Amino acid sequence: MTAPTELRVSKDRKQLSVTFPGHAPFTFSAEMLRVLSPSAEVQGHSPEQRVTVPGKMHVAISKLEPVGNYAVRITFDDFHDTGIFTWDYFHTLGHEKETRWQSYLDELAEKGLSREK
């Protein structure tokens, strides 16, 4: 996957826009990136181990750090920083954004959890 031409954090630190060459920017909320983090802490080591993360509605992005030429590490203001967001992951997440977000909301409802703290 080609590297994005731009990663832009909004002034309020609540959104990240990722622009790939020849493509409109994908805009992700910090909450979405936090709860769908590719980290083992969230994804587990198998689908059965995946964790539904509640209470992140107000999370913000604290820092972006490049990881080689293939990814970025996002540090959130809740101190989560173990997810390595590859360019492939951003691209996939951008194309599946609505489906993945709805699945997350459905999981919260099924488990009686909330986006609020």
Rank of each mutant, 00 (worst) to 15 (best):
M1T: 04
A3S: 12
T5A: 09
T5P: 03
T5Q: 13
T5L: 14
L7T: 12
R8D: 11
S10P: 13
K11D: 15
D12G: 05
L16I: 07
V18T: 01
P21R: 01
P21A: 09
H23M: 13
F26D: 13
T27C: 10
F28G: 05
L33G: 04
L33F: 05
R34D: 03
R34N: 09
S37Q: 08
P38W: 04
P38R: 08
A40E: 15
E41R: 11
V42I: 13
Q43M: 13
G44Q: 14
H45W: 15
H45Y: 15
S46E: 12
Q49Y: 04
Q49R: 00
R50I: 07
V51Y: 03
V53D: 12
M57Q: 07
H58D: 15
V59P: 06
A60M: 13
A60R: 14
A60P: 03
I61M: 10
I61K: 03
S62M: 14
E65M: 12
G68R: 07
N69K: 01
Y70G: 01
Y70D: 04
V72D: 00
R73E: 09
F76M: 09
F79K: 14
F79N: 14
H80M: 10
H80D: 07
H80Y: 07
T82H: 08
T82Q: 09
G83H: 03
I84E: 04
T86H: 01
T86D: 02
W87A: 00
H91S: 12
T92H: 08
T92R: 10
L93K: 01
K97F: 14
E98K: 03
Q102M: 12
L105S: 10
D106A: 11
A109H: 05
L113S: 08
L113M: 11
